[in-house]
Design a protein around this nucleic acid. Structure first.
Lengths: 148, 148
DNA sequence: GAACTTTTACCCACAATTCACCACTTTTAT
DNA sequence: ATAAAAGTGGTGAATTGTGGGTAAAAGTTC
């Protein structure tokens, strides 16, 4: 399971270095084969290839005649790119995805369980600020009895 | 169960020494393996790894399409970092978490049952001030009949 | 279709950072 | 008073992040 925030930077060629502490797990889970795609929150999602597979299949099973699900398919599957870690543990983020997420030099990689999120640093800080306003009324029913 | 307030200081490398009286319990509960993460109150949470695990699983099971729960996942899982106590019983608090909680030199570690909270000293004092204004109207229903 | 240009991928090397371990000082308890 | 334990700071070695350079692949133009 992936956790934690790391600040890192896109180099001149549009690559990011995956933090070393995740590399062992990534190699064992997917031999460095990752899927990068767009997220509705305007960040990027980074999945180990095996974890992505069932998501894509589920999306593909949706009706093509529902405009909403069709949009979701286009966003997620349409933007998905296969990438491989290079010898130095880096991956290349394609120009269209960089533009989508507004990534310039300073970005943050955020572990989220079985996947990562990749954010423009400013957007991420904003997102965290917003999360602080979480209150009891926002608690969904499935979190009944949940506490920290 | 952890109780009590301890003032301590972050050293130049961002480490804090866990008070010796907790170390025995921590070693037996988790061999010194702790999870540090962000709390909505702008302090940090410090969990023995086994106590954290069910919380993370519960969060991971939530819908990714509810913006509120998604924010909560990002705050808690995204900021969570694994740390190990060193030979001298210290843990390293990562720069992003220090910034989040506004920790400078003087901090306060507060035992809270199965976890700890780590506060900037000034913020903690403020928090205690605010707690003094607790009155009967603030009493939630599940505390009917409760008294000190 | 061939040659040239541009892009992409791969690999190697250096420099800064990080982490783990060690040593000293101070406090506390017997 | 002495000894053990706890707090504090320092050091060196290994690891990591970053940049560049080379070779192959793809694309374009004549």
């Amino acid at each position: 399971m992936f956790r934690g925030v790391t600040q890192l930077s896109l180099d001149a060629k549009g690559r990011i270095a995956i933090p070393a502490r995740y590399r062992g797990e990534l190699v064992s889970k997917c031999s460095g084969h990752l899927i990068v795609t767009a997220d509705p929150s305007k960040c990027l999602l980074v999945y180990p290839q095996p974890a992505w597979e069932p998501i894509e299949q589920r999306l593909n099973g949706l009706s093509s005649f529902n405009p909403k699900t069709r949009s979701l398919q286009r966003l997620l599957i349409g933007n998905a790119i296969d990438v491989e870690m290079d010898g130095a543990g880096r991956i290349l983020v394609s120009p269209p995805l960089r533009r989508f997420a507004g990534l310039s030099k300073d970005v943050v990689l955020v572990g989220q369980g079985e996947k990562f999120e990749l954010w423009d640093e400013g957007k991420w800080n904003q997102e965290i600020e917003d999360a602080l306003s979480f209150s009891e009324e926002d608690m969904p029913p499935e979190l009944n009895g949940f506490s920290l």
